Structures are given as C-alpha cells and as structure tokens.
Amino acid sequence: MYDLIIKNAKLIDETCVDIAIEQGQIAEIANSILARSKRVLDLRNKHYISAGWIDSHTHCFAHSPIYYDEPDVIGIKAGVTSVIDAGSVGALDVAEFYQLARQAHTHVYSFLNISKIGLITQSELANMDNIDALLFEQALIKYPDFVVGIKVRMSRSVVGENGVEPLIKAKKIQKKCGLPLMIHIGNNPPDLDEIADLLTEGDIITHCFNGKPNQILDKNNNLRDSMKSAIKRGVILDIGHGGESFSFAVAERAKSLGIYPNTISSDIYAKNRLHGPVLSLANIMTKFIALNYSKKRIIDSVTVNPAQILHLKNKGLIAVGYDADLTIFDIKQQPTSLSDAHGEVRQSQEQFVPLASIVADVAKDDIHIQITQEGSKNELRISS
C-alpha cells in the first residue's frame, strides 16, 4: 500500500500521469495506478505538477538584522520545497542558522558567506580580517549536508577598497572544498570584467540581469566580451531578482542575443516579499512568461537546473527513486502587470499560481503536505 497516490496530474508538457509516493520517495509513475493507498489526491487532469520548486537565492535566516524571513513562509507555503539562503550567515552564525532551519518543513540550505560575520552589515568584506579560511573550512566539515556553496558579494559598498581580493581568497577556499561559488555583482568597483575573468566552470553569477552600470551588457548594448568568455567556460547565470537587481530591458536584450539564465531565483526576504517587487518565486517566474520564455524553460530553471548545479541529491525531477518533493500549481489565465526593480512594467496574460507543496521527509519515511490558500479555493482535497 502506497502512502499517497496523486492521480491525473498534468505535467508541463500537458501529458497526465499518476504518481505514487512511498517512504518519502517517488515509487511509481504511470498513466494509471490502481494500487491501494493510504491517501489519494486527484488533480482531475486540471492542475499541473512538477518537481518541487527550488529557490536558489533567498534570505531566510530569521535572526538576521538586515535580510531575514521565515523559510516556510517563502517556501512550502508558497509552492517552494527547497530554499537556499545566499550568504546571510558566515561561519560565526552557521550553527544558529542550522538549528533554526531544522525546525522548518521546507528544505533549507546555505551558501555560506565567505565573511565570517555574514550579513550583519552591508560592508562585510571591507575588512579582510573577516575572511577566516580555517573557520570557514571547519564550518563546511561540520555541516556538509547544509552548506551547499560559498557566497561572495562583489560590489563597491561591500568590499570597500579591497577590489577583487575577497574573490581571489574565495576561489582559493573553493579549490580545496569543491563547492559551487555564487558571486553577487552590483555597483563597481570592482568592474564586472575583472570579476568575470576570475571565474571558472560552475561558478554562479547572481543578479545577472541587473540594470546597473556594472551589468553584463556593454555601452553598445551587446554582451561584454568577458561575459562571452565566462559563459563559454561554463559560468552559470542566476537571476537573483531582489529589490534592486533585475531589469526587464537587460533581460529582453539578453534573450535577443540568445543569453538565458540557468536558474530563476527571487533573492526574497521580508521587505521585498511584503512590499515588492519580488512578492514570491511564482511572481518572478510569471515575469518570464511576460518575456516569452517557454513554460518548460521556466520550470526547468526552478527544478532540475538548480538541483544539478547545487548537487542536491534526488531532487529536481519527477522520477522513480527521487525524493517526493513536488509542487502543484495552476497557470492561471488572468492579465497581470509586473514590475522590475526599476519600476518598468510588463504585462502577462498568464500567472503561475502555486496550489500545494509536498515535501519529502526521507529520514522519517514520510511527507509533509501544505495546501496553499489558493489551493483551498480550488478545493484540493486529500481522501483517505
């Protein structure tokens, strides 16, 4: 007997399947599953299902003095099954964050800030003494399943007079541990060309479509040569929308040049969730409908792509043996206005609307099911 069978679930390619879950993992996928189950959720060939959405750039350390939120608020209650905090904490606070994260139903991971103090100040890398390689490496050893990457913020307000030196130190640490490195780009100095030239395969540039002077496009509105080379080397592009770091104009020009992000992420925290322009990962995904991205590309950018880039084992796909992390959603036919970080507005005739999250608890051989407010309106019901 299965723990849960989801019947008549619509995939993003419009095909419909039944999905059986047992002991926190996907046990069977078929056109029709007739086996008995403790619980059944019938989506009536009406609602979509995908692997659980992964927001690969958030700020969800609730005790942070600057950028904070609750993992389950931006996670399971919003259709997101995994959230990755992007540098809110460094080695000094990772233990506290780990304990808080274990209390959430949402899967929580961390890009550990290369600065040991994390984001308790906006200028965490202006003092090079804040980079303590030994302390950092000890944190990686202690929390190997929690820390999935390294975060370094490379903008003028953060590094002060230190230029790219923090990035050079981060690359040295990365060489030892092999974890993905996420680089925040903002106002210069340091210049993006100098940053890009230091990056190697698998490094992640976040805020990749920001509209600041230090952006991926040159003065002629073409892709910088340094970025062409970086992308060719395998450098990853991440959206990291945030309150100040996404431009429709840059995204549109990049698309016309054949440049797409590998991952779509929100850079969400309480302020930009409550007051915009972020609101939710679903809202950011809807902006890419407005940019005429295919639905499959958008879904891949919040499921299989981040799972593979961040080496999240057994996540990102609907496949037998994978964790039962799933997002149930609608693509609602309703006009909406969408704003970027500069107040520019685009229109979309459709919206991503999360209805429910299913999160695997493999350690307990169980799952947690969270039906959203919109899901309740759609009368999603689990029968026993």
Rank of each mutant, 00 (worst) to 15 (best):
H311D: 11
D323E: 15
A30E: 11
E96G: 14
I54M: 01
D191S: 13
A91H: 03
G375K: 03
A360Y: 01
E124R: 06
V362N: 13
S226D: 09
V73R: 15
L274G: 11
T372P: 06
H241W: 02
I49Y: 06
E344W: 15
L41D: 01
D3I: 02
G276K: 09
V83R: 02
L43W: 09
R36H: 15
K287W: 03
T263S: 08
G75Y: 04
I331F: 06
T303M: 02
V164E: 10
I205Q: 01
A251L: 07
A27M: 08
Y67D: 04
G186F: 00
L92D: 12
I66M: 08
R39I: 06
D191Q: 14
G243M: 09
D69T: 07
G375L: 02
Y2C: 12
L11H: 04
F288Y: 14
L380M: 05
F329V: 07
A341L: 02
F61W: 10
N210L: 10
F209P: 03
A9Q: 02
K142H: 12
V250F: 11
P306I: 00
I371W: 00
R253L: 12
N221S: 13
I6G: 05
L43T: 05
K228F: 10
I216A: 07
L326P: 00
I358C: 05
H184S: 00
H184T: 00
A230S: 09
N130E: 07
I299Y: 03
G178E: 08
I173G: 03
M182K: 05
D340M: 07
Y98H: 14
H57M: 05
G79Q: 00
G90C: 01
I168M: 11
S301A: 13
K228L: 13
Y48I: 03
A62P: 12
E252M: 14
S64C: 12
S376C: 15
A356G: 07
L281R: 01
S266K: 01
K10P: 02
V152M: 04
K315Q: 11
E252N: 13
K295S: 11
D93N: 15
K212W: 09
R44L: 12
I141M: 13
D193G: 04
A133S: 13
N188H: 15
A9M: 03
S123P: 07
I131D: 06
Q308C: 13
A104C: 12
Y98T: 07
I74C: 07
L310Y: 14
A86I: 08
V159D: 00
L119N: 00
N210S: 09
D323F: 09
K228S: 11
V158G: 00
I236N: 07
D145A: 12
R224Y: 04
V147L: 04
V250Y: 10
L217C: 04
H207C: 02
L43I: 07
A319Q: 14
I150S: 02
G160Q: 04
S88T: 08
T15E: 08
G276T: 09
A251R: 03
A95K: 15
E96F: 13
K377M: 11
G375Y: 03
L43A: 05
H207S: 08
D3C: 04
A270D: 15
I21S: 06
C208E: 06
E165H: 12
R233G: 07
P213N: 06
V147D: 00
A101R: 05
A249D: 14
Q103E: 15
T58G: 05
